[in-house]
Design a protein around this nucleic acid. Sequence first.
DNA 1: CTGAAAGCGCTTACAG
DNA 2: CTGAAAGCGCTTACAG
Lengths: 333, 333
Amino acid sequence: MKNITIADVAKLAGVSKSTVSQFLNKRYEYMSELTRERIELAVEELDYRPNIVARSLTQKSTFTVGVIVANILHSFSTHIIRAIENKFYEHGFHIIVCNADDEPEKEKEYIEMLMAKQVDGIIIFPTGGNIDLYKRMKKSGFPLVFMDRTIADLGIETVLLDNDKAAELAVNHFAESGYSKIAIVTTSIIRNISPRIERIQGYKRALVSHQLNVNADYVKTADSDAISSALDELFELVAPPEALLAGNDFVLMEVLKYIKNHNLIIPADVAVIGIDDVPFASFYTPSITTISQPMIEMANLAVKLLMKQMNEKEHGEPEVYRLQPTLIARGSC
Amino acid sequence: MKNITIADVAKLAGVSKSTVSQFLNKRYEYMSELTRERIELAVEELDYRPNIVARSLTQKSTFTVGVIVANILHSFSTHIIRAIENKFYEHGFHIIVCNADDEPEKEKEYIEMLMAKQVDGIIIFPTGGNIDLYKRMKKSGFPLVFMDRTIADLGIETVLLDNDKAAELAVNHFAESGYSKIAIVTTSIIRNISPRIERIQGYKRALVSHQLNVNADYVKTADSDAISSALDELFELVAPPEALLAGNDFVLMEVLKYIKNHNLIIPADVAVIGIDDVPFASFYTPSITTISQPMIEMANLAVKLLMKQMNEKEHGEPEVYRLQPTLIARGSC
DNA sequence: CTGAAAGCGCTTACAG
DNA sequence: CTGAAAGCGCTTACAG
């Protein structure tokens, strides 16, 4: 069951390996009709498939890129991965998906493994825990794009949501519906995960622009498993909030669980808006008003930027691209 | 910015490439303490990383496996991918995730690309549209495991849910709650996608065992976008069903949308059970009774079977493994 | 228009 | 205990 190689094709077609290689790479210009046909036949006959590993070794390109997501369980991550995969498929590239599980250590191992595997570039949802490594990659000119999260002063091209704006849209909507006691809940902000920080900033700024009080008690950050008790604290306040902005899909689910368990009514007791347009938003009761991210565009842009880096030796000034969120008004506010 | 290779290390350490290679592969037995230390230092000094592509070429193993899912948008697929990835990570393997998008043509391209890339094995959620190709792979001894769906008479190792049992659990639960007008809705069964067929069979068998009528009008199969009209037909029957078994997560979502749009009450107007324990089941109103698949075990088993095939030349008799579902009783029935 | 040769960066018998 | 040589399956100048 030995593999058939270019040598077998060459022998059968009665030409040299070089010529077969030219054929495989569709460089027909200097090839006689006859030669071409004979090779074509031989390839057919042997059902020959080029070994891409060997090709990669000579060409210094594996036609594979890595995608390391911080946490694959976010519906955002899954959708982005899918869109990235789709786009690269069009270009004949494969992606290797890695899940850092929010652990910088795991992220580091993945980066090293991917580079050892000679991937042509990497898209990372950075955990933020490997600054030195990011710097070294950047310095060595390795094609690299950040997604979803930005890290200050690194000069790495980044695609992310205009998070400030996302929070602002939500607060505007709450305010226009007459709410003034508006709280925000996000997952943990250790390691300064940028979207969370920016969403809180945007929330505060928007409150101010509506001449509303910024109440520190109304800003909660907690790990997934502690969100329920954070909500307890919120609702035990003398003046509990009447509107809740959920910072992402995890938080939204925790909020909805909490509301259900405490027999609260949306929006009569508390209005809700979630950032990330989760699949069930439209048929939940009541339907949930959400802020949607332009995921396809974000994915396509990241792919485009990475491809550009892979194709050009000269890298331009890296930019941070902030795409615009949209509010989808439904029944929860 | 030239890459540093084993030759650079050898030169710096003052030994041959062979010896460095021995070192890298941790074959220290016949190596003097001194040599080892010098190589260690040289590797450190140069920050040398082996090129895995080159290694793969000689070793005929890429330490990479492919996973082709029929449709990545099912929450089941995502969870399985995550668990597979986790398990392979432990073994030092990477996975390349491909999404066939329910298109046999795309599945075929992926299989060919993965094999050209010399992956060590593939786990497929088969679309069912490439029987000849599956056969050829099997015949050539290429490590291959099917997940979620089985294809008759192919002799390929398969891990899937006991689908018959899944439907039975649901029907039992409906019956015990006093329902007799029980319908089942699944996505399209063209190409004989096995879980759908088996779930319908299990449904029928369970009805019989409860001495209930098997009413052909109560069995609906339709593409995602046609489920809504299938439900119309169901509810326009002279004797509309009072209980609905949703064949998977897509169907469940369509069912819930439909129910919401028509102002029906669960379970008063219609009881609902969904196969696949979707994330929102526990906090939906009412909470949704579901049939849960043992996803982690299924993933781990598939990995184990594939690893076994990759490590043994002699393949034993391929088996079909059906894992057991569990019913999670909640408020919708 | 086509082929011989060198090279990509490793590993693997084999010899000493 | 260590090294020279061949080989993995391709591609790429270069020569003719």
